[in-house]
């Protein structure tokens, strides 16, 4: 039943045997030790498990691992390989997060936004992160940090 898949994870090649029903999130966290994507709902509703698939954000908790065969996955660990990104630095300065559990997923989504649209307005930022739930912050400091980066570039 197991199938071998090959994909790029944060720039490195990965070869792993997976069951057809294994979720990408579980493979990343439990088998590959990549812990930044979080398990929040298991239904693709909260966005805490967001990762980039070929640069586009997906919910790894509702993505089967076999689906990423031959593709490129980036997590927070991959984004900051060469040090914190400007977005992360801005999050830090704005005290954007409180409990921090949604931070990796939120960072993935905001990174995707800024890659596609380097100068979003406030409503575009809100729209982009509306699928990433945060229960602590009321979003304001997250939005301010993203807007700050978009103004600098």
């Amino acid at each position: 039943m197991k199938k071998e898949i090959n994909f790029t994870l944060n720039g490195n090649p990965v070869k792993i045997e997976v069951m057809p029903n294994e979720k990408l999130l579980d493979v990343l966290r439990d088998r590959l030790g990549v812990k930044s994507p979080k398990h929040g709902c298991g239904r693709g509703e909260c966005g805490a498990c967001s990762v980039l698939l070929n640069g586009k954000s997906i919910r790894s908790c509702i993505t089967l691992a076999i689906e990423v065969d031959g593709q490129e996955i980036t997590t927070l660990e991959g984004l900051e390989k060469n040090g914190m990104t400007d977005l992360q630095k801005s999050f830090l300065q704005h005290n954007s997060f409180q409990c921090g559990f949604c931070a990796p997923g939120m960072t993935i989504t905001a990174t995707e936004l800024l890659n596609k649209n380097p100068h979003p307005d406030e409503e575009e930022v809100r729209e982009a992160i509306a699928g990433n739930l945060c229960r602590c912050t009321g979003y304001q400091n997250i939005i301010d940090a993203i807007l700050d980066v978009s103004k600098k570039e």
Binding site: K35, Q93, N95, C99, G100
Partner: peptide
Amino acid sequence: AVRIDGLEKITGAAKYTDDLD
């Protein structure tokens, strides 16, 4: 001030219980 747990949380270094091996 920048919160002292900010760096850990923003880099994903912060460990939550399910992140422990």
